[in-house]
Write a protein that binds this DNA or RNA. Structure first.
Lengths: 349, 349
DNA sequence: GTTAGCACTCATTTTTATTGAGTGCTAATT
DNA sequence: AATTAGCACTCAATAAAAATGAGTGCTAAC
């Protein structure tokens, strides 16, 4: 069967109506809509076709229709490819400067949740080509030395290292020099066992301590170790009856809490967005129901967008809501926030 | 009216039964309990008295009774003052060493939630007498300087400071010396405007940068700025029907998310525990329903305990659950974890 | 190809009955 | 004087029955 313009219009009307009300949509409701001057009976025939084609479903005989995942997908694809309307009267979002990245991201997730009324999730940026930029050991007190490690993208990692015997300033200086000359500018792959042994040798009696430092360096560079997830607006799911029975709500909320579930989503979404970057969709991905890599989100839709800070630090933000979420608004909001982060970063620079 | 032994027994029986079932308890149920050899009618009379005294409530005429907040309070007070039974077959909890405090606390909250099946919340420690221990500026690249600030208790704070013109190593060394000689060992109150002006003067053309550094120091020392809250097990509330209607669940979950709500709870609980430290209750506080400083917790009970790391760093952990929570188990679990943290810290030292 | 008409379906709502746990009170018993 | 048996009564919860109404599919007329 072929999709024609009237079918498209009817499908769109069904979906739009369902997005608003969350209730199955009947033929009469649609016939009353202006623009489409046909009787309910005709609509019924078309609906019957649409159902056969898999775009809509009947929860039970003699109820109205609701969109299937395929129906949503059709709608979302059409919407996304449309020329973007000017960013309408969207709530102004102001990301305040925060000097800690974590604060900033927490703020972003809150902002997303508040302006969409869905749940939001923001990941810390994953650094791709991260090289060591700077190491510094400092003597903090008689039996502890602090190692500060800065990697590209100005990610900072601290590690307090206990020492048996007090170390004098001179030695610290020497060790600093040793570490910096050998390690600066290197990536994880370049720091191999040979190099480590060499450095340890040169460190003499302090080789053990240097071992700890190098471990910390490795940890700092390895990106996924530091992947943090910020969530907000979990309680928003209670706004949508179809998600708020105990079973589902509990599942969604624990997923939001079990932040590690998002790693998969993140890596998949990052790569998929890379793939179709040419299609110029502002790097926004929509997962409807079972399309989502997170199985417990089968009753939700997940919309993800990437953001990019300096030096290729890419992170992800997503909105989690019912399948009948306002995709248009969500996409706009994400786009807005992408830009916001962009300009914020530029200002900072 | 007076409380006698039989009334106490009956009250206790009502509460225990209600804790298990969550259903109102009737006179026949209690009469069938061994140990109390009286007829349901007698129980009814006693129950009538207990109700008059405010220990129990009838949800509606001709239903069984449920404990009132006052009833729970009676029960909890009795339980807490009993000689503590040996820590029975409690699930072994192992706090793995984590080198980041935040990881550790997140882990603790998860552990609490998992072993009690309630929601858990852990605060980062609040430092009381925090003095500056160590400052270090380092040149990271041509236009940024990294300030590392260590306060007592080995809390580390990093701040990246952009600079207009490149600074040479010598100047950095001088500034480091300047800062350390003037600021080390001082607490927030001791760093006054006069001192700041003095330092800025000495810093000459770098006074502006030094200003940023001192701001960061102030921020690092001010404890409440850094108060972080870790939560876990929010979804556990769905285990308890009396909390899982949408209204209540949503309220509780957003409270868990709005972490700032806990500040009040924390400060109050810390001081109250200080007050009655002599009464030897292991610093465990129970807030039943409206007793809680957090208004949205009126349908829950909140049990809090403090923990203490080195140098008087005190933090709080709490369990949030239904009023009919297993207070005994919760108290034991908290106690266990207090000890665990204690030994962990000692090992570390 | 479109529409009016109609019988039919079925979730939802409303109504009515039924059940049963639990009470309070009174009068008998210990 | 305290305890208990007995009984009428209350009321949430469950079940069963009836009414409602939105919506469908199909057929026949336009």
């Amino acid at each position: 069967m072929e999709m024609n313009e009237r079918k498209t219009k009817i499908l769109e009307a069904i979906i739009k109506n369902y997005l608003e009300t969350g209730e199955p949509v009947g033929s009469r409701t649609i016939s009353k809509l202006e623009g489409l001057k046909v009787s309910p009976a005709t609509i019924r025939n078309e609906m019957s076709d649409l159902e056969e084609m898999g775009y809509i479903l009947q929860p039970h005989t003699s109820s109205g229709r609701i969109p299937s995942d395929k129906g949503y997908r059709f709608y979302v694809d059409r919407m996304m490819s449309e020329k973007e309307k000017e960013v309408s009267d969207m709530k102004d979002m102001v990301v305040q400067k925060a000097d800690q990245l974590s604060e900033l991201l927490q703020q972003v997730s809150k902002l997303l949740a508040e302006s969409t009324n869905y749940a939001a999730m923001v990941s810390s940026p994953q650094i791709h080509h991260n090289k060591l930029k700077f190491i510094q050991l400092s003597k903090v007190d008689a039996n502890s030395v602090l190692a500060v490690i800065v990697v590209e993208g100005n990610i900072i990692k601290n590690k307090m290292i206990p020492v048996e015997e007090e170390i004098d300033q001179d030695t610290i200086l020497k060790l600093n020099l040793l570490l910096n000359t050998h390690l600066n500018g290197l990536s994880l792959e370049e720091i191999n066992l040979g190099l480590i042994t060499l450095i340890k040798e040169r460190a003499g009696i302090h080789s053990e301590m240097i071992g700890s430092v190098i471990d910390a360096v490795a940890e700092a560079i390895r990106a996924d170790e530091d992947l943090e997830i910020y969530t907000s607006g979990a309680n928003n799911i209670f706004r949508y009856p179809e998600l708020s029975d105990n079973q589902k709500a509990s599942e969604i909320i624990s997923t939001l809490e079990e932040k590690n579930q998002f790693e998969e989503l993140m890596s998949r979404s990052l790569s998929e967005i890379d793939d179709k970057l040419d299609s110029e969709q502002h790097g926004i991905q929509v997962y409807i129901g079972n399309e989502s890599p997170i199985k417990s989100m089968k009753d939700c839709s997940v919309v993800t967008a990437t953001y990019e800070l300096e030096d290729g630090m890419k992170g992800m933000m997503s909105i989690i809501g019912p399948k009948r979420m306002d995709y248009e608004k969500v996409a706009k909001t994400l786009k807005k926030l992408q830009e916001e982060l962009d300009t914020l970063y530029k200002k900072k620079k």
